[in-house]
Structure formats: C-alpha cells, structure tokens
Nucleic acid binder design. Sequence first.
DNA 1: GTGAAAGCGCTAACAC
DNA 2: GTGTTAGCGCTTTCAC
Lengths: 351, 351
Amino acid sequence: MKPVTVYDIAKEANVSVATVSRVLNNTAPVKASTRERIQGLINKYQFQPNALARSLIKKATGMIGIILPDITNPFFPEVLAGLEQEARKRGYTYFLCDTGSSNQDIKDQYKRESQYLNILIEKQVDGIIMIGGRIDLHKCSKEMANEVAEVNKRVPLVFINGNLPGARYHRVVVDETAGAMRVTEHLIGLGHRDIAFIGGYPQMSNTVRRLEGFRMAMERAELPVREDWINHGGFSVQRGKELMDRLLGMEGKPPTAVVCANDLVGIGAIKAAVKAGLQVPRDLSITGVDDVPMAANVIPELTTLSLKCRELGRTAANVLHLLISKSEPVELLTTLQPELVIRESTSPPAG
Amino acid sequence: MKPVTVYDIAKEANVSVATVSRVLNNTAPVKASTRERIQGLINKYQFQPNALARSLIKKATGMIGIILPDITNPFFPEVLAGLEQEARKRGYTYFLCDTGSSNQDIKDQYKRESQYLNILIEKQVDGIIMIGGRIDLHKCSKEMANEVAEVNKRVPLVFINGNLPGARYHRVVVDETAGAMRVTEHLIGLGHRDIAFIGGYPQMSNTVRRLEGFRMAMERAELPVREDWINHGGFSVQRGKELMDRLLGMEGKPPTAVVCANDLVGIGAIKAAVKAGLQVPRDLSITGVDDVPMAANVIPELTTLSLKCRELGRTAANVLHLLISKSEPVELLTTLQPELVIRESTSPPAG
DNA sequence: GTGAAAGCGCTAACAC
DNA sequence: GTGTTAGCGCTTTCAC
C-alpha cells in the first residue's frame, strides 16, 4: 500500500492541500469543523508527513551529525549521553558517525572522517559536531584541515576538545592542562616526588596538553621530570598494562606515582601493578583522566580528573543549536573546568 | 552564498540538468568531453547534490534508525560497533536514538521510544533496528506492541534480542537460555552446589531467559534452587553491589558461587565481595553475561558469557539490509550461539 | 478561512 | 548523446 500524502487527506476532506498543511503546522487559523475533519483523517490513516519534502522547502532538517573516533571507548558514550539529552530537547535527531578506529583499519580513520563530512553535507544536516580524530592532531595536514574549513563555511560546526589551524572554529573545551596540573599537584601534595607519566600519543594535542600540565606542576614544585618515565603508546587498557610493565621493568628505584593519560590506561596500569605484586595505592599511586563510569568501579577506585563528559556534550549541543538558530552571537570558545576526583588509587608514598 | 544546484552546473556547462544528473549518477553514457567539463565544474564548486531531493524521488534515503535504551551501558556500544561496520559497508548512515534511561526520567523511556519511532518514519528511514526497551518486556502492553506492529507494516524492522506479541518480527537473537545453562554448568562442574542468581528485572524477558537457563542447569544436576538466593533489581554495577551485600548479609551459609545477570552486576558483585573481605574466586566464584570489554579488565578478570555483541550488530545490520533490498527472502529468526569465556573469577569452591 | 499554483533540487521517462 | 518535462510531497505566497 502506498503511503498516504497530504493530497489523499485533502481529497477525502474536500479541502485543498494548503488547508491540510495549515492544520499540520498550525500556521494559519482553520475553521474548527474542517480542522477536526482533517485531524480525524490524519488519525485514521496515521498520516505522517514526509520530512524530506518538508525539509526540502524549509531548508532545515532537524538533523545534526556527530563524528567521533570510537564509540567503544567509554568516554564517548558519556559525551553522547549529554549531547543526546540536549539535542532531543531541541528537536534534533542525530547521525552517529563512528570512524571506527576499533573495527577497521585505523589508517583509514581520517579517510572515513572525510567521507562522513561529505555525506552529512549531502544529507543537509543543520550542523555538525566533531570530537576526536583529526581535530586532536597536534599537527594536522593542510589538506585535512582544509576539508574541515570548507565544511565550516557551509554548515555550523562545533569542535569538542580539539582545534585545527587555518580557520576560526567554535569550540567547547575542558582545560586539560590545568586539570593535569591539579592531578599532579594532588600527588605532590601527598608527598610524591618520583612521578611518571604514561599513555596517550605524542602527536595528539590532548596528550600534549595533559603532559604540559604535568610538567608545569612538577616544575612549580621544583621536582625533576625523568624523561625516561614519560612513555606514550595509546589510550587503551592494554597499552596501560604494557606501559606500566615497562616502567616496572626499568633499572633503579621505580616511581611512587604514575599519572596516566586517561582512565583506561590507568585501569591497565593498576592491573599490571597488581599482577607484579604491588599494592595500589600503598606501593604505587595511580591516577587517570576522563572519569568514565568504570573508574569508580575498579578496585581500587581510580582517582581521576573528571572531564565533565556529559556537560561537554550538553554544552556542545547547546552551542551548535545557538549557531543553527542564529538567535544570538556565540562565543568562539567555551571552556569548562575539569574536576579532580579523589578516590582510592592515590595515597602518600610508603616509607 | 547560496548552495549550488544542478541547474547552476548545467547552465555554466551549457548542458541540461539531465546531463548533469547523468554524470552524477553514471546512469547513461555521456560524451567524454562534456562529462569532463561538468566534472570540472562539480569540483570547482565542490558541488554536493542534495540528498533530500534525491531521496524524495528514489524513495530510499540510505538512512536507518537504531533505537536503544542507554548508550552508556557498554553492551550497546559494542553492538553498535558491529552494526556501524556493516551499515557503512552497505552505504547506510544511521540515526542513533537513545531513549536515555541514564539521563532522564526512566518512566518516560517508552514514550521516547514511541516518539523516535514516529520521527524515524517521518524522516523516511529505510529501516529500523530496535534493541532493548519495550521489546525486552516480558509482558508488553497491547498499545505499545501495537505501535511497533504498525511501524513494522511501513518499514523493515529488526529486533535484536527481543520480541513482541501480536505480529511476526524479524529477529536476531543469541540463545541466552542455553548460555546461562552453560555458565551454570561450568560452576557446577567446578564443584559448586550452592549457587545464587542476582540482577536483572523479573519483568524483562532477558532476565527470564537467563534465569531459566540457570534453573535448568540446576535441575539437571539435581541441585536445589534457593529462591531467597534469587534477587533482581537491575543491570548496573551499583545494583550488583547492593544485591551482593544483601546476599552476604543473609543468615546461614552463603553461596559459594553467584551467577550475575550481566557483567556490570558481576563487577559490582566482585566489588562488594572484596569489600566484605572475601577473596574472589577462592571464597566466592562470580560470573557475568555480555562479555563487555571491561569484564576482561577488572581484577579478577570476570568469567562471563559472551553474547557476541559485535556479531549481533553486524548480523542485524545484514538482515535489515536484506530486508530493505528485498533481494532474497529472509528468515524471521537468526540465532547466534553465545560462548562461555572462562577467566579468573571462577574456581572450585574452597574446602 | 480557503484554494490555486509556484516551487524546493533532483531523477527519469520520453523525445529527438 | 542530450534536452524537455513531469513529478517526488510538501509549504507558501497571493488571491479571493
């Protein structure tokens, strides 16, 4: 059976399509009796207006796109949850564009970003939010940056925790440098002097920022930074284990505390430390960054830096909505303050 | 600046829109020279055809909708990852419709499902996948079931691990009953006789199925089922802690093993047990269901039942695609076998 | 309060 | 090979 259209409704109600449209959109007064007649038919046929046709005219689709690198990393669902809430409230639905670093060849991640960018434009989304991927690159290639700049000209665009050279973007960020400083200072305040930093990728700006905060805190406390205690390699639990193993395998006195680039690495670090016979935090304090739900569920519960994931998502959706509705001018940069969450994985050093 | 259309391209290339459309879709041969001329303009203006207009004619959008209850529960991102992979390969983009049991008033969850169902139809998605929510209800109300039946008439629909009365649906399921039996038998094989079951909701069919498998294994081994050791209350880590605490607080000899309704409950159960001074698995064996990534990352690593999340997602996307393309008849029911994953949280009972 | 008609940007017959 | 034209299903002037 063919889907019913405004014409079908109009014909059966003995009115014109214009009138049907009017009751559909409440865009002009309609006589109560005809309105009821039409409404009756709408209910009878469970008529649902075709949003494609509507959007084609209105030049607005109520759809936005979210491009992210890996929904499987628990950080992103948290951000999404915040985003969803705000988006739904404003009447948007969203395309989730996972560039799938967990599934597919990670080398193609940026290619998939480009594809999704194009697809979203063709689908006429009202706006796009990007998080992770190329906007986290410390040095992004001119071509990749350019692509995004072009998109930015065509449709409202908001970055979460990232940036790109060559254009001015609307960004919602959390001050990771200050946050990493706070984490490190917490450790220093506890009495630690020998502190390592593991995880992340040196070519990613989030890692650079977190490491920078770490260094600033150490410097301010006049503590030496052991360069061989700074090791990168990724953001996964597996990486955390490996990096911690390496740290534990080094000659000489080990660190008494380890700042991890994110919670997953921190969880891996705990695993490796426990497996090596250490007690956390007695023998070794460990911290994370993100405050994903699991951070509160591991044993011992992970001291971490809350990146305010949900608020980040809500805020980004909000900024994007403001941009779309053009109701008011929007600040380019919105900065949230992260929050130190002290749990069980940190304590004064033993001895 | 206005977006460029086929007309703009056609005019500047001195051809008709039909020819532009032809090179865009490779739908008929075009003289090489004109094709190049047109392609040049397309590149020059970075012309992207409006997918709304195209879909309006073709009656296909390349969009599908996924309705799920809570992206924040790590089970769902895993399924999504599988789904995304398959969907992308087939050229679909998808709306993520999170009915947000984590954010908002959970009482409105089913209302949001209804809303999303309507929105997806209006947006003319080519198909819908549902997972969780009302399709997991052991007894779903007539009205709620009816809504879905109506949707099922209008657009291809696939359920993951759920069902609804009143109509025949295409479903991709994993045999949870057999799986729960396998888990329980593993425990029994280890020598356990006093086994509890915690977590889930009695009104949800997944809980019913898992509990059924548990009971069947116990019965087959001629072991008594202690009804006061069967406690429901949810699927979260927090619930797992509470339910385990209650178990530990009961009079008499405690169970030597606990089958948890899912991994999160299992992780909570471990936390509560450890906090109570027990050693897992020496004093208490604990199992989960799902095999979310975190199950392998907690200490001790959780023995669990892999629900083949990714495969579930891939298969569902596949089935939906088959339904959409009508290329071949599709089985109503696709069943996957779950897999017991033995890790560290189970061992023979002490002494 | 209501209808006629002109599109929104594209594809697909159907001519030539 | 290419152009003309009629829609897809809806909203929106502009009359009446």
